[in-house]
Design a protein around this nucleic acid. Sequence first.
DNA 1: CGGTCACTTGATCGTCTTCAATACCAGTGG
DNA 2: CCACTGGTATTGAAGACGATCAAGTGACCG
Lengths: 245, 245
Amino acid sequence: MNALPTRPLVLDPREAVEPCARCDARERSVCNAIPEADLRRLGEASSIGTAAPGTTFISEGEPASAFFNITRGAAKLYKLMPDGRRQITGFVGVGHFLGLAVSDTYAFSAEAIDPVRYCRFSRPKLRTLLDDFPAMEKRLLQLASNELVAAQEQMLLLGRKTARERVASFLLAQARLGLVCQMPRARFALPMTRGDIADYVGMTIETISRTLTKLRSDGLIDIPNANDIVILNRPAMERIAEGMN
Amino acid sequence: MNALPTRPLVLDPREAVEPCARCDARERSVCNAIPEADLRRLGEASSIGTAAPGTTFISEGEPASAFFNITRGAAKLYKLMPDGRRQITGFVGVGHFLGLAVSDTYAFSAEAIDPVRYCRFSRPKLRTLLDDFPAMEKRLLQLASNELVAAQEQMLLLGRKTARERVASFLLAQARLGLVCQMPRARFALPMTRGDIADYVGMTIETISRTLTKLRSDGLIDIPNANDIVILNRPAMERIAEGMN
DNA sequence: CGGTCACTTGATCGTCTTCAATACCAGTGG
DNA sequence: CCACTGGTATTGAAGACGATCAAGTGACCG
């Protein structure tokens, strides 16, 4: 399921010298708010880290000593209850900025799905960076605002949608993922397991599976294999997702 | 249910002259990021508006032409589905800043609960204000981050908690409302209806009512009248809210 | 007093969960 | 090559929790 990384996960010596100048995640992240001339400062404020698939690199409740900027791979964010119930609050990819909790401890955990690379900013270093580059703060506010809108959409899904509507909404959102002003894909891969999907849309694995097979037998989607989805009838799917049955 | 406003809703002539200098909501909002000397500019960038109880002053899907800063009263934010299903995404009070959707349309609706007063900033005016006062952008980012944390907590509630856990969590959150670094109240008023609570925690009016009476008969809370709550056994309530039954 | 509105309480129903069995697939080693 | 293993997904049957439908209560107000 986890595709091989397109570039090796070990550090490239050139990157140690001028890491940010060569970072292919820069345009997709907050870092594009920093002018080229100041990239050295950006690099000095952060350190590069990695997380293997299945590894937790942020733990809910621990001291929030740093912020993370994902530069490769994907991760899931989640909250746990003492008895093990889990709510995944989001899947994040390249360019995503983590740790914006203003409290002194992390409000969620983060676990790598693929091999993940990130830039780690200590709190004080990020603060001085933000003081010197207000444009970066602007970008962060944009990102946070977008996340807030997504969170509200997810609350509607969790609080008021049926199983069928949840799965349809989820699939359509996945089809749009990473695309900006572009036609969503008809076919796409689900990088996460059924269990992850279930904990994201607030249901059980079994109901996810049943709902998917029902959508297939209704001719709305195809499931060539467990990890791939083809949307056959997008208009109908969108109607379902919005509750227009 | 809606208490009389402590001050009349009509405009005070002095406020027209130096509205922000006399604003008693300033310390609780983003506006405290603007130095005293520049309050005139702040006042010129915004216009004061009001919304009577039950009035919708932001409508989901309409062009997001302005931002709002609540200076008096309380409101509920919600999203609707075509068939009328509603999810309340939050209750907001004095100092809350609304409209941070980066999209060109509002992502939610806002309806006044009490008589509401707000300062309205047009998009371009707020933008120049933020350009001139980076500290204000900092404050906005703080607020947005806090909201994001609250949204994640709410997702856990909506996706994974039982009816009893939801109501307990909701009541405890209400008891903490508006308090910073202070003991939560044992007794407090619920300004919203059972219907609002239901649409906030993703259940029906009937289940809210039943769950409340069950909590009362268990001796955990008292309900002197429909709008007031007394928490009799806070530790037990907190255990329930966290799922430690 | 009759009216409305919000809330409460009861009985029944349905959707999703739970429990359980089976299928599937990749990797490993005989 | 094939049996074995562990993880993941699918499918079935039974059960529970909350929703729905319906009736009743109480407060407020003209």
